[in-house]
C-alpha cells in the first residue's frame, strides 16, 4: 500500500504548497516502508520529471482536456481512481484541495484529517497532529480507516531536494459526465498575483491604512519583499481590498514564514487566521494594540512613515 500525493497546478505551474505536500508524502512513504506517487491533473507547464527531487519516483499525469479547468468533483474522481492501491493520500491545503479531499473521502470511505501540521506518528497505528479551533489549539487524531486522507498546511515540512528524476506516466481513468454538469459562466482571477496560501511572506493592512487610496506604501513593501498582500475583515467589507484577501476566522487562514500587520488592531478573529505564522511583525500607532501580544517584532508608529522606511531598507539590503 503506497502513498499518493495530489499535486496542484496553477496556470500549469506546480504550486509551491504542493511541492511541500509531495515531500511530506515521500517522508510518510519512507516511514511506512513504501513509495510515494505524485498525481498531476490538468495541463502542466512544469517539467514533471523534476518532481523526483521531492522524493517521488513516479508521476501520474491525467491530462484529459476536460480536466483543464480545476473541477473538484472530477478531480476527486481521478484522485480516488489513482488511490486504489494507496493507504495514504496527501493533499496540500487549498480551496481546491479541501473540496476534492472531502469528495474523495466520500468515495473511498476514507478517514480524513484537515490542516495537518507535522509528519504522522506511525510508531503505533497512525496518528496525525492538526490545527483546530482556527489555530487556537492542536489535536492528535488516530486514523483507523484502511484509507487515510490528509490535507497538509503550509510549513508542515521543509523540503530538502535531491537530484533524482521521476518517471511520468499518463493516467486516464473514466470520467463520468455528471462531474462536468455544472457550467462555468465566467472566471475572474487576479493575474500575476502571489496566492496568499502559497506565499512565504504576507504584508497585510487593516483599517489603520485609512482608505483604498492609501495602499501604495504597503504594496511597495510587498513588492520589495516578494510578498503577497492581505487585509483585515473590515477592509474587505468596506471594499478597500478584494474579498479574497481577507484573513482571519471568517477569511483565509495563512501560515507564512513572515506576516507583517500594518494598522491592524489584532482582534481575536483576525489572530485566528494568522497564528500559524512563523514570525509576526506588527506596526501600529497604538502601543496598547492587542496584536503586539502575538507579535515577535513590533514598531509603534504611523504606518505611513514606517512603511517607506522598511521598503527602502528592503531594497538596499535585498537588492530588490
Amino acid at each position: 500500500m503506497s502513498v499518493l500525493v495530489f499535486v496542484e497546478t496553477d496556470g500549469g505551474e506546480v504550486k509551491k504548497s504542493s511541492l511541500e505536500a509531495l515531500y511530506y508524502g515521500a517522508k510518510v512513504a519512507a516511514q511506512l516502508h513504501t513509495t510515494a506517487t505524485a498525481l498531476v491533473i490538468g495541463p502542466a507547464a512544469t517539467d514533471l520529471t523534476t518532481l523526483g527531487q521531492y522524493g517521488t519516483a513516479e508521476v501520474l499525469h491525467a491530462s484529459d482536456a476536460r480536466l483543464a479547468q480545476a473541477n473538484p468533483m472530477a478531480y476527486a474522481g481521478v484522485v480516488a481512481a489513482a488511490a486504489e492501491n494507496a493507504e495514504v493520500v496527501v493533499i496540500a491545503k487549498s480551496s481546491l484541495g479541501d473540496a476534492l479531499a472531502a469528495r474523495a473521502a466520500g468515495k473511498l470511505k476514507a478517514g480524513l484529517v484537515s490542516n495537518v501540521t507535522e509528519l504522522p506518528d506511525t510508531s503505533a497505528g497512525f496518528r496525525v497532529k492538526s490545527s483546530i479551533y482556527t489555530g487556537k489549539a492542536f489535536a492528535v487524531t488516530e486514523m483507523k480507516a484502511g484509507k487515510k486522507i490528509l490535507t497538509v498546511k503550509k510549513n508542515a515540512v521543509s523540503p530538502e531536494l535531491t537530484d533524482a528524476s521521476a518517471s511520468v506516466k499518463p493516467f486516464a481513468p473514466a470520467l463520468p459526465d455528471a462531474d462536468f454538469a455544472a457550467k462555468v459562466l465566467s472566471t475572474e482571477k487576479a493575474s500575476g498575483e502571489l496566492s496568499l496560501s502559497d506565499a512565504d511572506i504576507i504584508v497585510s493592512g487593516g483599517r489603520g491604512m485609512k482608505g483604498p487610496d492609501h495602499w501604495q506604501p504597503l504594496l511597495d513593501l510587498a513588492q520589495a519583499l516578494h510578498a503577497a498582500t492581505g487585509c483585515s475583515k473590515p477592509v474587505s467589507d468596506l471594499d478597500w481590498r478584494p474579498h479574497h484577501e481577507h484573513i482571519g476566522q471568517t477569511g483565509i487562514k495563512v501560515s507564512p514564514n513572515l506576516y507583517i500587520a500594518c494598522g491592524i488592531s489584532g482582534a481575536i478573529q483576525h489572530l485566528a487566521g494568522v497564528n500559524g505564522s512563523k514570525v509576526i511583525v506588527v506596526i501600529n500607532k497604538d502601543p496598547e494594540a492587542p496584536f503586539f501580544k502575538a507579535a515577535d517584532y513590533g514598531i509603534v508608529g504611523d504606518v505611513f512613515e514606517i512603511l517607506p522606511r522598511l521598503t527602502q531598507a528592503a531594497k538596499e539590503q535585498l537588492g530588490s
Partner: peptide, 26 residues
C-alpha cells in the same frame, strides 16, 4: 468512526515581543 482524537494541545506560549524604535524601522 474512521478517526478519533486522542489528545489536544495548546500552542506554545509566545516569547516577548522585540520592539524596534520607529526612527530605526530599517
Amino acid at each position: 468512526s474512521l478517526t478519533q482524537v486522542t489528545q489536544f494541545e495548546l500552542p506554545p506560549a509566545k516569547g516577548a515581543v522585540k520592539m524596534i524604535p520607529a526612527e530605526d524601522a530599517g
